[in-house]
Amino acid sequence: MSEFQLKSGDLVTAAYKSGEYVGELVELYPPRVAVVKILAVLVHPTQGDLHHPFAANVPLFHQRRALAYGEKASAPLASVRPYDGEVPEYKASLKKALEEQISKLREDTSEWAQRSLVQLKELQKEYFAE
């Protein structure tokens, strides 16, 4: 276990698949799992196949959505850390994380990056359709 004590109700950061989030700790299942209620997005999930990262020629190139506001996720306990900042508003945090990922991928000319950009732009339309 870690050097800090976590309890239900604590604000935490947690990694889930390839995204990173701010959330409220709901339950702990040591030594491996923490259930976290999602409040904000820090890093948008990476597109593609998690088992073949950065590979474009895979049988299924996954479109990976960010976890939704209030969604509960079982995050690896090793990825959970206390969070002491102000929690950003969910929609604004999602937009920022998505724009940061798109910006990074625009600099990458690989086939994986270009396929990822297509997926992220589709998600952008879905997330922010009014």
Rank of each mutant, 00 (worst) to 15 (best):
Q119C: 14
V43P: 00
F54P: 00
A56M: 11
L28G: 00
L67F: 05
D108F: 02
L120I: 14
K95N: 11
L11S: 06
F54Q: 10
Q63I: 15
Q101E: 15
F4T: 14
L123I: 07
E3P: 04
Y21Q: 03
A73H: 01
E3G: 13
Y127A: 04
Q101I: 02
S2M: 11
K95A: 12
E100V: 14
R32G: 07
S79G: 07
S116K: 09
L105D: 11
Y90D: 05
E122Q: 13
L50N: 05
V41F: 01
A66Y: 04
K91Q: 12
L6C: 03
V12F: 04
Y83R: 10
L98P: 03
L60Y: 15
D84A: 11
F61E: 10
Y21L: 02
H62W: 13
A92L: 11
A34M: 00
S18G: 01
S18R: 09
Y90E: 01
L123A: 06
L39C: 01
R106M: 15
Y127Q: 04
A97S: 10
P82Q: 12
L105I: 11
Q114H: 14
L42Y: 00
V22C: 10
A129V: 06
S103W: 05
Q101A: 11
Q5C: 10
Q5G: 04
A92T: 08
V41T: 06
P76S: 13
T13Q: 06
Q5R: 14
A75T: 09
S116E: 10
Y83S: 12
E111R: 13
K125D: 10
A92K: 14
K125Q: 13
K121R: 15
S116V: 12
T109I: 05
G19D: 03
P76E: 12
H62E: 10
E99F: 08
V12M: 02
P88I: 06
K95Y: 07
V118P: 02
P53M: 08
V33K: 02
A15S: 13
G70T: 13
V26A: 02
T13M: 05
P31D: 11
E107S: 12
E71W: 08
F4L: 05
E99G: 06
L50Q: 07
S93C: 11
S18E: 12
N57H: 15
Q124K: 15
L25Q: 00
Y21P: 03
K121I: 09
V35Y: 00
P82R: 15
E20F: 02
V33T: 13
D10V: 01
H52W: 07
K7Y: 01
S116L: 08
Y29S: 05
A68W: 12
S74P: 10
G23S: 00
P31Q: 08
E111Q: 14
H52I: 00
E122K: 14
L25E: 00
S18L: 04
R64P: 07
K121Q: 15
P88W: 10
L39W: 00
A15E: 11
S103L: 13
K7S: 07
